[in-house]
Design a protein around this nucleic acid. Structure first.
Lengths: 205, 205
DNA sequence: TCGTGCCTTTACCAAATGGTAAAATTTATT
DNA sequence: AATAAATTTTACCATTTGGTAAAGGCACGA
């Protein structure tokens, strides 16, 4: 037994909470917070609406739980950017990981995009509490690299913004990208090559 | 009298439709399509809900009208990219105009972002009808410039995506940007300098 | 000034939606 | 098996929301 409260979550409880969060990720990312309904989530989870409300305190509780839980996964690539590595390859690897995430976890990307677009009403604490410190830390790291002459003088904050926006674009604006590219073979590879070229060019002294 | 139907729009009609669309832009861009309510729009327009429905056929009609009407303004900077100009400065001017628009018309940016995020359910025809041809035309122009050796070999489609994403980021993710930058003086100038540096670097042969 | 047509308001409505109470059922424990 | 606890279902409810009907007000030309 871990700590104070004894084994609180049963096997069935764990399974159903997972089912609900999985369904909620799908629905919230497709329709946004207000556009999503408990009935949709219930249907997609294969449970009844009251049953869902047995596991969560309400719609907002599901949404906040989802966002908080995914925050770690979402920030993983940035966490992985290490002072031990070589600056250019560290940043290029970061770009690549972010782009891969846009391809592999588009729902997560759209979930966050939706939330930020609406002014981050339910995730603001997470932003200042988790994201901001990490962002500041990595900006300081890049600034340090610049000071050491290992990177050209550029704006760390806006560099990171550029990485976020260019990579997440492929998930968040996927419907537009699809219309504009038409039936291209392997758009992900093309995007990857383009972004590598772009950031490599600007990072070489 | 212009054509077939005689003077159909009265002075009061023009004023009220404008009031409604202005209010709708505000509300839709803040809450998304489903998050917005006719009551909110009515309140912000200073009209009653039934009165609004006297001028528009319904919520969707307002939304579609808004999107279609703003499409031209939105695409203006891209239209302005001219074969007559010098490639690098044409593209850099385009970046600058897009960034200025993100600052001056953030509601329009968020309106489109919301719509695309939801899969462009109500604007798909406009995408294929207006945006796609323009996009293809400008990609061909950039490709032509590359062929002429006036630009380094890069991917026209993904270059435009990069311009869109980096500039619109400042409008669409404004709440996040504000949290992360803190009270910086003139973030727009910093963003402008960074993007100019970034794109200029990659465009110089 | 009188009426005709444009505009606005009042009073509604049906459907959708987040949520609850409590009975019924299943699962786990002894 | 018996019983207590956890889980699920059934039957609701209040509010919100997009939308409508129809009466009332108002402007403007004859």
């Amino acid at each position: 037994m871990p700590d104070g409260a004894p084994k609180k979550t049963s096997r069935i409880q764990k399974r159903n909470r997972r089912l609900i969060l999985e369904a909620a990720l799908d629905v919230f990312s497709r329709h946004g917070y207000r556009g999503a309904t408990l009935d949709q989530i219930a249907a997609e989870a294969g449970l009844s609406k009251p049953n869902i409300l047995y596991y969560f305190d309400g719609k907002e509780d599901i949404h906040v739980t989802l966002l908080s839980q995914l925050m770690d996964t979402w920030l993983d690539p940035l966490v992985a950017m290490s002072p031990a590595g070589e600056p250019v390859s560290e940043i290029l690897s970061y770009v690549q990981r972010k782009l891969d995430m846009a391809r592999d976890l588009p729902r997560e990307s759209r979930l966050f995009a939706n939330e930020i677009l609406q002014g981050a009403p339910r995730i603001a604490p997470e932003l200042t509490g988790h994201l901001k410190p990490l962002f500041d830390e990595k900006c300081a790291l890049i600034a340090e690299w610049i000071t050491q002459g290992r990177l050209p003088p550029l704006d760390p904050q806006h560099l990171i913004f550029s990485i976020w926006s260019t990579t997440q674009h492929y998930a968040d604006f996927e419907s537009q990208v699809r219309v504009l590219l038409g039936p291209t073979e392997d758009p992900h590879a093309r995007a990857s090559a383009h972004l590598r070229l772009m950031f490599e060019t600007m990072l070489r002294v």
